[in-house]
Amino acid sequence: MRPETEAELAEMIAGATGPLRIRGGGTRDVGRAVAGDVLETGGLSGIRLYEPGALTMVAGAGTPLAEIETALAAEGQRLAFEPGDWRGLLGSAGESTLGGVVAANASGPRRVTVGAARDFMLGVRFVDGTGRIVKNGGRVMKNVTGYDLVKLMSGSWGTLGVLSEVSFKVLPKPEAVGVLLCEGLDDGTAIAALSRALGSPWEVSGAAHLQRGLDGAPVTMIRVEGLEGSVAYRCGQLQRLLKDVGDFVVERDPERTTAGWQYIRDVVPFHGRDGEVWRLSVTPGEAPGTVAQLEGVEAVYDWGGGLVWLLAPEGTPMRDAVKRGHATLFRASAERRTEGALFPPQPAPLAALEAGLRGKFDPRGILNPGLMG
């Protein structure tokens, strides 16, 4: 099924007699496999409104992300939350769509300063599990009463409704970028240095540590963005702040800095390699110790995003290791994806609230049933 209009989408969902597998571009195959008729949103495509002066855009949920980024780049603007391209990580194909980004709340290293994808959403239109068309929000930021459906739909993975249109905020591209690089730090030292940089007044917009960089050695990265003079000054201040940690050199070449952060954003070190991929969210003090107690794992610390990506042998008891925090199984064998919880288990009160919301918006339980179970 591939609706071309919101009305067709509502009609298809209302007339569904069984489970529906919601599909945007097919690039974010995360969670338990859903058995059901495929409902594709690619026909709900196109930029409906773009006001560069107001920093807002409205587009159909099936609009390719590349189309949106091209339109923004022509005006010197961008999606500041830098959604990742997970195709290489997950071994998927297709073309990422706006709706898929919102449904996954896909956000990159810059979330430390600007927020996640959900923080840029101004309004949504979607069809719930009964076939009802729902609208919430608009084209400006404002206070809301009742359900904040804009944020509720972000990260819901298509289990509460099928997005048809999204309005969102964009930001200008910075004039300059500087990246501080240091090789050879162990995990504990690197995380302490990144935490110190993030806690400084120098407006760090990305902080990461790889256990194995391109040349095989550990590499620690700190990003600064803004006006040319400001970037140069803040990079110098960060070098002085961290001089007792190691020799941080500054990279200013735009192509190299962009490629370096795409490497972190897309978790490129784990592309095409055997093993499970987990995404952890733990406190700074516990992150190195959590990783160290696991055998045979490799870590990418997207510390500006508050995340640790782990490549681990199949069957690694990750939830036993993560005492305080969250662990999501992003990539695993088909058999493994049928076992246990792939998303972090919810405490009983939150699980009850979540069940109530699903009962409200999808009373028949037909939208991506079991995907997050």
Rank of each mutant, 00 (worst) to 15 (best):
V150D: 12
T56Q: 06
R196L: 11
L152C: 09
A287D: 00
H271G: 03
V282P: 11
G123F: 00
A217M: 03
K135C: 10
F361L: 10
V297G: 12
L171W: 04
K151E: 13
G60L: 02
P3I: 04
M141E: 15
G43A: 00
H326Y: 14
W278K: 10
G15I: 01
W309H: 09
I47D: 00
W309T: 07
V170W: 10
Y50T: 07
S156A: 15
P83R: 15
E11N: 12
V282I: 10
F361A: 10
L210H: 03
L180N: 01
L329A: 02
P369I: 06
F361E: 05
V267D: 11
P201G: 14
V300S: 08
D253Y: 10
G161V: 04
G43Q: 04
D29P: 08
F120T: 02
T41Y: 00
T189S: 15
L238S: 00
V34D: 09
M318D: 13
D274I: 11
G296M: 08
R256M: 01
A193Y: 00
L350H: 14
P218T: 11
Q211C: 07
P19C: 02
P317N: 09
G216A: 04
V250S: 10
G356Y: 11
K173W: 10
L79I: 13
S205Y: 10
Q293F: 11
F168C: 06
T113N: 12
E286D: 15
V140H: 03
P313Q: 12
D253M: 08
T283F: 13
I22W: 12
G88A: 06
R256D: 01
F126T: 05
